[in-house]
């Protein structure tokens, strides 16, 4: 994929060229939004909003990592959606008491089709639930940094571009986010698979 050529074509009004970029980054965008928002419908809305915003603001792209630029749109869309939810909290009509829409553990479509060990599946689901619970309790900018670094695997420079923050701030923010997350996950020790337990006999 010749990314710069697609961006140039998209700037000239070629929607198909832009859609090829969307196809390239939509899964990453959705996963980041899902970790930021914590539920599938909000993540889908944020991802869609982010791509519309990216198309409208494509002229503001000044080179560099296009992935980082798209993810900036995604995190901004998530911040907006989270603020909107705080202003107008919604109550689910289907009895979901936390009011956060479709929770991730119910997303059967997301389960690994090749998995054959139910015990392993349950452990993975518990781990994911525990991590998401702790991510939701992090401040939004800490959450974004730890998602981008540790879940999506972006390097510091890309995270700095995505967050629009200096590299030094990213480093300290990431350190603090990791240790906050660790402290939160200690409460889920019994639920976590033994290899991910943070308090362990070989550590102790």
């Amino acid at each position: 994929m010749d990314e710069p050529a697609l961006i140039r074509s998209a700037l000239e009004g070629d929607l198909n060229a832009f859609n090829r970029l969307v196809i390239e980054y939509q899964e990453t965008a959705f996963n980041v939004a899902l970790r930021m928002m914590g539920d599938v419908p909000s993540a889908e809305d944020a991802a869609q909003t982010a791509f519309i915003s990216a198309y409208k603001n494509l002229r503001q792209y000044r080179g560099g990592s296009f992935r980082a630029w798209v993810l900036r749109m995604v995190t901004n869309a998530c911040y907006d959606e989270l603020r909107r939810q705080k202003r107008r909290p919604t109550i689910s009509l289907d009895g979901d008491d936390d009011g956060e829409g479709e929770p991730m553990e119910e997303t059967g479509w997301a389960a690994d089709p090749n998995a054959v060990d139910p015990q392993s599946d349950m452990e993975k689901a518990d781990l994911e639930h525990a991590i998401q619970h702790c991510l939701d309790r992090l401040p939004e900018d800490f959450r974004a940094v730890v998602i981008l670094a540790d879940i999506e695997g972006l390097d510091y420079e890309e995270i700095a571009r995505t967050a629009g923050t200096p590299l030094g701030t990213i480093k300290s923010r990431l350190a603090r986010a990791r240790f906050k997350l660790r402290d939160c996950l200690k409460a889920f020790e019994e639920l976590l698979p033994s290899r991910y337990r943070l308090i362990n006999e070989d550590i102790e």
Partner: peptide, 18 residues
């Protein structure tokens, strides 16, 4: 261990195209 746990999270497939 924390980093390993975060890296082990499954990547969710999208249900629709954007």
């Amino acid at each position: 261990r924390l980093k390993a746990a975060l890296r082990s999270l499954p990547r969710h497939k999208i249900r629709r195209s954007y």
